[in-house]
């Protein structure tokens, strides 16, 4: 089950120490995109350091993670393309963004047919190529995800002795009228899992293509 970060109980504040939190909160349980188990210690540490959200009463928050058998620079080169999310996001049919990719850029996303929205207006809140952090906020559109904000981080790791990547994406969003917090988290997690699974397929596909090129090239 998903443990919601709600009611103002967030991850431990930086430098806060015991003074602000008399009793340490129970450990957070996150649901992996393709595994039903607790995040490992390293992942929990990444969440604590990079994925801080402070949901209010009417909001919910959660995170998903995905292990990808592709080097981190390749995965990051895909996710940082704020102007072309259709490269790996299965829900996007078209995207328009003017100018360069920089903090404050706004993109207009057209969503594929058959889905519960047709368009979304999204702002780039943070793009850190050194730490590999991407933060996006939804600022408009006909979806029901009001005040949606997400943080995506990319971390190098080793999988089966080869360079791999751990991707973590967390979010906070208003709970729409008529839905419960649990339903809303479930729905957004489902979207993010599809995104990360597609990202894995595209990245790993490129690795395969790279490996089949002649060695003397």
């Amino acid at each position: 089950m998903v443990v919601e970060m709600d009611g103002g109980v967030g991850v431990a504040a930086a430098g806060g120490g015991g003074a602000q939190t008399p009793a340490p909160p129970p450990p957070r349980r996150w649901r992996l995109a393709d595994e039903r188990c607790d995040l490992r210690a390293m992942e929990t540490d990444y969440v604590r350091r990079f994925h801080r959200h402070e949901p209010r009463d009417h909001q919910c928050s959660s995170a998903v993670a995905k292990h990808i058998k592709a080097p981190v620079h390749l995965v990051w080169s895909l996710v940082r393309r704020f102007d072309q999310p259709q490269l790996f996001k299965p829900f996007v049919s078209r995207c328009e963004m003017k100018g360069n990719i920089e903090i404050g850029s706004v993109r207009e996303v057209n969503v594929k047919s058959g889905l519960p929205a047709t368009r979304s207006t999204e702002r780039l809140e943070l793009l850190d190529d050194d730490e590999r952090i991407l933060s996006v906020r939804f600022v408009g559109g006909d979806h029901r995800l009001q005040n949606y904000s997400s943080i995506l981080t990319v971390h190098p790791e080793v999988i089966d002795g080869r360079p791999g990547t751990l991707v973590i994406e967390s979010f906070v969003v208003d709970v729409p009228d008529g839905n419960t917090k649990d339903e809303t988290c479930y729905f957004v997690e489902a979207l993010l899992k599809c995104n990360l699974r597609s990202l894995a397929e595209v990245s790993e596909g490129q690795v395969i293509m790279d490996q089949t090129e002649p060695l003397d090239r």
Partner: peptide, 26 residues
Amino acid sequence: GRVVFNNGHRVRGILAMSRALGDRLL
């Protein structure tokens, strides 16, 4: 899975039908 109401009843809150050809991710 779960059915979530999101502009209609949808599988995972995403697709408004329960059977379809294709749709591998669902």
